[in-house]
Design a protein around this nucleic acid. Structure first.
Length: 576
DNA sequence: GCCGTTTTCGGCCCGACTGTTTTCAGTCG
């Protein structure tokens, strides 16, 4: 059983317990445990096999440790099965309706026997919901609207897509004269690969003017809420945007609060409490014995952290994973930035499925300030993408040799190939061809539904091939499209170490694997990461920023990423 | 259900907004 599966069961159990009216802190304990497990680099199953003490993990006590051991050994979580006897799992869909929490959902279930979104819709249409105690006509209407949102809300928004909306929103709001400061916050600012909603924060002396302007944003479909300082809207895409207007002396505190994550903030506030301070979105306050509160700081985010003896945390690290431990030991990593990258070692041309020529890709890379690139078209197995056979590839490399003669500075164009790792194992091109390359990428494109053993053996086999330098997109997942293939990443990590090979962080906005957690795990094991764009056209090189965000979320520094070095130094790392 | 350099019991972050209510519970982030 994988960490993801164990975490999912705890989360489901938490949802059911909440629905059932359980103590909210108990519910939170299950959710905290699920998060810890999801964030771990090491498989729990291995820890159980080796009889390791699970209670040393954050948020795992005796009880949950026993439950994990039982799950690993039997595949069952008895308590979850018991709850599912009592409450059908379909009621959990009801909890996804905006405005419906566990209390109201429980009333609907108990009073009207509602167990699915369909039944809920029928109950609303028949006006049976507004008759319930604590419900009214407005609530019924909200639920009816919310059902459609819940049904459509399976996909989260790609960061790249949210970025376009954010930029438009900022431009639109800047038309409002009273705005002194305006910044995006939330998961967008933390650079998460997908975001749930957009959070904006502004300083203004006239909140109502800002909100009026906000309401005029052309994509606004409806206003969900509007008060003195806070307004929420839903765009026509279904995406929710929250806007908060605060006074200047609270901007830093509000940024801190609004950026989250929730878990990071819980930790911050509990640290404040131990120091006799209180942190909210309005500032840091000293709490006297008589309960009286005095404002300490709040204008700048760094001041808020400093008041708690904490360093300013880059937003990408604010997940309550390692950041507080790093801060305590003074080892907060100096995260990589885009300008640290010297090369891009994964891109396509019109020789296979790219849209631009070699010359155009080189020109674009130069414009991006890169020092070297590798041309890595697909190999023959990827026939759909017009993949290259040995002859065509050698032809292309001859062309690159010719092109190199025209370069009058130290820019380097490497002869590369994205070579498929075949379904039955082995590489898609003969060794004598690969041996002539500067840079060979091993990729899985076919047979993604194979067993864990098969997939893992294929990738490990590729890492053992002396010509292969790196494995591209090692988990194959496409965000919102398909899950990662079954691969034992720990084995892949060990093979990468043993063979001195690199693993890719593919910057394409729908890939971004390795993800943040796996980046951190690779770093911990000393495996160099290569951040590549996998560009299929010149504009594709711009995607590098998404990869940088993911790398930063994984805590990677300049030295953790191989292509921040010169090509000569990278070759040394490969033992050449 | 977790956790402990005050604690093995009694805490567990904090505030805005809405709707249905007459003073607040529920939801959300």
């Amino acid at each position: 059983m994988t960490n993801e599966q164990i975490a999912n069961r705890f989360d489901t159990l938490a949802d059911l317990l909440e629905f059932d009216g359980a103590n909210s802190f108990r519910v939170r304990a299950y959710r905290n445990a699920a998060r810890t497990i999801r964030d771990m680099g090491d498989p729990l199953a291995t820890m159980v096999d080796q009889n390791e003490d699970l209670t040393k993990l954050d948020g795992i006590g005796d009880d949950l440790a026993k439950k994990i051991v039982a799950m690993v050994n039997t595949g069952k979580l008895q308590q979850l099965d018991d709850m599912l006897e009592k409450i059908p799992a379909s009621v959990l869909a009801i909890l996804r309706v905006p405005g419906l929490g566990p209390k109201k959902a429980a009333v609907l279930y108990k009073e009207l026997k509602v167990t699915s979104l369909d039944q809920l819709e029928r109950a609303c249409v028949a006006h049976r919901v507004k008759e319930l105690k604590g419900f009214g006509a407005k609530t019924e209407e909200t639920i009816l609207k919310g059902i459609k949102i819940a049904a459509a809300a399976d996909d989260r928004t790609y960061w790249a897509k949210a970025d376009l909306v954010v930029q438009d929103l900022l431009k639109h709001l800047k038309g409002c004269k009273s705005i002194e400061r305006l910044e995006p916050a939330g998961s967008y600012r933390r650079g998460k690969e997908t975001i749930g909603d957009i959070d904006l924060l502004s300083v203004s002396t006239d909140a109502q003017e800002v909100m009026d302007r906000f309401a005029e944003f052309p994509l606004v479909e409806e206003t969900i809420a509007r008060g003195d300082t806070k307004m929420s809207v839903r765009l026509d895409t279904g995406l929710q945007v929250d806007l908060r207007v605060v006074p200047a002396e609270s901007f830093g505190a509000a940024m801190q609060y609004f950026t989250g994550s929730k878990e990071h903030n819980v930790r911050v506030r509990s640290i404040a409490k131990q120091k006799g301070l209180k942190v909210n979105e309005w500032g840091v306050f000293r709490v006297a014995d008589n309960g009286e509160e005095t404002y300490v700081v709040g204008q700048e985010e760094a001041e808020v952290y400093a008041a708690l003896d904490l360093p300013w945390f880059p937003p990408e690290l604010r997940e309550d994973r390692e950041e507080f431990r790093w801060a305590e030991s003074g080892k907060l990593p100096d995260l990589i930035v885009e300008s640290d990258l010297q090369g891009d070692l994964h891109m396509h041309t019109h020789a296979s499925d790219g849209s631009n020529s070699l010359e155009e890709m080189v020109a674009a890379a130069r414009e991006r300030g890169l020092k070297y690139i590798a041309i890595t078209d697909h190999s023959q197995r990827v026939s759909m993408a017009n993949g290259l056979d040995g002859d065509r590839l050698l032809e292309q490399w001859k062309m690159i040799d010719e092109f190199r003669k025209t370069i009058d500075d130290d820019f380097q164009v490497l002869k590369g190939i994205e070579c498929d790792i075949l379904e039955q194992g082995g590489m898609d091109l003969p060794d004598e061809v690969l041996a002539q390359a500067d840079w060979v990428i091993g990729s899985v494109h076919y047979g993604q539904n194979q067993s864990k053993r098969q997939i893992t053996d294929r990738i490990v086999g590729a890492l053992e091939n002396p010509h292969v330098c790196m494995i591209a997109h090692p988990t194959g997942r496409l965000i919102n499209v398909r899950p990662p293939y079954e691969v034992d990443l720990e084995e892949v990590f060990q093979a990468a170490i043993a063979n001195k090979k690199f693993l890719e962080l593919n910057a394409a906005s729908k890939r971004l694997d390795l993800n943040d957690v796996y980046c951190a795990a690779a770093k911990q094991r000393g495996i160099p990461i290569v951040i590549n764009t996998d560009a299929h056209r010149t504009e594709g090189l711009l995607q590098v920023r998404y990869g940088i965000l993911q790398a930063r979320r994984g805590g990677l520094t300049k030295s953790d990423v191989a292509n921040t070095r010169s090509w000569a130094d990278m070759q040394k790392m490969l033992g050449r």
